[in-house]
């Protein structure tokens, strides 16, 4: 455990009204290397924002650190406040393999979990909760599957269920980690429509880790280009410029401990691997002993 992992306590929140997520000089280290090295960014509220970058760029680590799942130094604000203050207003959709496979649970029961933070550990769920669950299932188009066990659903159906759980939280900020990994194109389009609707019509904010630059360019309002640090942060058209992308994906200055003579390694970016494989992202990080989550 590097000294950095022993958390430097988050300082007082910088009041930042109108933001969904800010980070100030955030560092995260695993096993001696830095995955995030001085990340500073500002995602405005009410936008559909994407965090993009090559494998091992620390995309997942960034959102996990923001949600307190990974120890970090530096400062985050969510919805302009500390995590502690706004936890109830934030919903999180983890990467799909973070979930226990083969868990005997129905789709509706998964969505019901979204109501737990609101109800606490002991209070009974009310009719309001049932309605919220049903509404969420309906919005993501899986209300017919409510009583089906999760392990009988397809990848796309499962992802709809998890998004429904986030909706049931009725949160102002949705954080999604690779929401479209292993999801068919039709589902991806439907879910993107839904996310867009949330931002445009309901003034909610969405921050999604994503790797498909084309959809980011076409569908998102805001993009953060990450490669250990923030290379660009703004409207997708400005962020996804060829020279910046080449810098992020092409140069790969941080190739991993083996060939790095000075041993000071933050990332394990490989030029060879295409950025489209979300799973390889994690393998690359865990291959040298650093759990990515």
């Amino acid at each position: 455990m590097s000294p950095l992992e022993r958390a430097v306590p988050n300082g007082a929140p910088v009041p930042s009204p109108g933001t969904a997520l800010t980070a100030t000089d955030v560092r995260v280290g695993y096993g001696g290397g830095l995955v995030l090295d001085g990340v500073t960014l500002r995602v405005p509220a009410g936008r559909l924002a994407a965090v993009v970058g090559p494998n091992g760029a620390g995309k997942s680590t960034l959102v996990k650190a923001a949600l307190g799942l990974v120890r970090s130094s530096g400062r985050f604000t969510l919805l302009g406040d500390t995590l502690r203050a706004v936890r109830r207003r934030v919903a999180y959709v983890p990467q799909r393999d973070a979930v226990t496979r083969d868990f005997p649970i129905t789709a509706a029961q998964v969505v019901e979990m979204g109501r737990y933070p609101r109800r606490g550990w002991f209070r009974r769920l009310t009719e309001e909760d049932d309605l919220a669950v049903e509404a969420a299932l309906r919005r993501t188009g899986v209300v017919d599957l409510a009583d089906r066990p999760l392990d009988e659903l397809s990848g796309g159906q499962r992802q709809r269920v998890f998004l429904a759980r986030a909706l049931a939280q009725q949160a102002d900020l949705l954080v999604l980690d690779e929401p479209f990994a292993g999801v068919d194109a039709r589902t991806e389009a439907a879910l993107l429509d839904l996310l867009t609707e949330l931002c445009r019509d309901e003034a909610r904010s969405v921050v999604a880790v994503h790797h498909d630059l084309r959809t980011v360019r076409e569908r998102f309002d805001h993009a953060v280009l990450l490669a250990g640090r923030v290379l660009a942060d703004g409207p997708p058209a400005e962020v996804l410029r060829p020279e910046l992308l080449e810098h992020a994906y092409g140069l790969a200055p941080l190739r991993g401990a083996v060939d790095e003579p000075d041993g000071r390694v933050g990332l394990t970016v490989s030029t060879a691997s295409p950025p489209e494989t979300g799973a390889a992202d994690r393998t690359a990080a865990s291959a040298d002993g650093s759990p990515d989550r």
Partner: peptide, 21 residues
């Protein structure tokens, strides 16, 4: 019975559980 929700949440989806506090 008492700790049903934390038990279920942390068994099913530990990251989500952690994120919800």
């Amino acid at each position: 019975v008492l700790f049903w929700r934390p038990l279920v949440l942390t068994s099913f989806d530990p990251e989500f559980a952690e994120a919800t506090g």
